[in-house]
Simulated scan of single mutants.
Amino acid sequence: MTSHRQPAVFAGHGSPMYALEPNRYTAAWTHLGKSLKRPDAILVISAHWVTRGVWVTAMPKPKTIHDFGGFPQALFDIEYPAPGSPALAERVKELLSVPVVMEENEWGIDHGAWSVLKYLYPDADVPVVQLSLDGSMSAREHYELAKQLRPLRDENILILASGNVVHNLRTIHWQDGAQPFPWATEFNDFFVSEMNANHHETLIDWELVGDAAHLSIPTPEHYWPALYMLALQSEGEHAKVLVDGIEMSSIGMLSFSIQ
């Protein structure tokens, strides 16, 4: 990584409760935040904002969104009052080859974003813009679109993607210490191995990998953000695993950086 280029970071965000209950994953995000050069702004791609078309938040003061249910009131009380950056939103619109909707009212900073950001930048003093995932795009279309964001890394913009490489809510075991399903471990290890070997094609075409992939990715919105970060890798750069693990039997907590 050049001295002035920001890394691209993927965080496996896991349960919203991690925002209240620090653990080894949140410790890794805290450590990362302390080690990074301070960015001018952060562009977040969250699994929790899937839209028709591509949208970007353009408001100066995005609200904190509590897009979940059934959790303690303390989680709904969390606010992450980071400013927005209409200028970064406009820059994203300039870079992308597809029409972009500048969203100024309905969205803000969702829990896929703030549950990680509160550990990276606890003072909420770095501007945040969110880029949506177009639900009609294929994995390859997402990957190709993400490549167009590469110039931002040389403009002191931290690009953060939040999702989970393994994300099967239907098979979760809620008890502490639940053992990972073999298929979850198999696909997670496959992803890390292919990522380290720079084999992006096999990860884009994950539907060809087999049963472990389909069980790990019953719906693709939590997987797509990882592809955005792989697409931001430049020649000579490598992926670095920040923390890894399978929680609740079927939620992959892999976080990695590209630098």
Score class of each variant (00 low, 15 high):
H173F: 14
L133H: 10
P60L: 15
I172T: 00
Y80F: 13
E103D: 13
V56G: 06
S255W: 03
A27Q: 06
G236K: 04
A74P: 11
H222S: 04
W49V: 08
P220H: 08
P16R: 01
L120D: 00
A27E: 06
A124R: 14
K63S: 14
G84Y: 12
W224T: 13
T30P: 13
W206P: 01
D134K: 09
V166L: 14
E104R: 15
P225N: 10
L227W: 07
Q233G: 12
I172F: 00
Y25D: 00
V128E: 04
G245V: 11
G236C: 04
I45W: 00
A146S: 05
E155S: 08
A231G: 12
T185V: 09
W183M: 03
S85G: 05
K37N: 11
P225M: 12
I258P: 04
A58F: 09
A11T: 11
Y228P: 05
A27K: 04
E90Y: 13
K147E: 04
P7V: 13
G33P: 07
G112I: 13
A11E: 06
H199E: 04
N156H: 07
N105T: 13
V44H: 02
Q6V: 07
Q179L: 07
W55H: 15
L203V: 07
L232H: 08
G84Q: 12
L230G: 03
Y18P: 01
W224D: 10
E201D: 07
K37V: 09
D77M: 00
L169W: 06
P127I: 04
V100T: 00
I251V: 05
S216F: 13
R140F: 03
Y223D: 03
L131W: 06
E221S: 13
W183D: 02
P72Y: 15
L131I: 08
G210L: 05
L120G: 01
D176C: 06
D40H: 14
R150T: 08
K240R: 14
G177L: 04
L160I: 10
E235Y: 15
A8F: 12
M195E: 09
Q148Y: 03
P39K: 01
N198H: 07
E144C: 06
R24F: 07
L117S: 00
S255P: 02
A212G: 11
T219M: 12
I109K: 05
D189K: 06
T185C: 06
T2E: 10
L203T: 04
S85E: 03
H48S: 06
L158N: 00
I246C: 06
D176M: 11
R52V: 15
K63Q: 15
M102C: 12
Y223H: 00
V243L: 01
D244T: 14
G14H: 01
Y18E: 01
A41W: 15
M102S: 13
W174G: 05
H200Q: 12
H48R: 05
F76E: 10
M253C: 00
L32K: 02
D134P: 12
V209W: 11
H31F: 03
D134G: 11
A161S: 14
G12S: 11
A197L: 14
T171E: 08
E144S: 08
P151L: 05
L36A: 05
T202C: 10
M102H: 12
F10M: 07
T202A: 12
S85Y: 02
Y18A: 02
A178N: 00
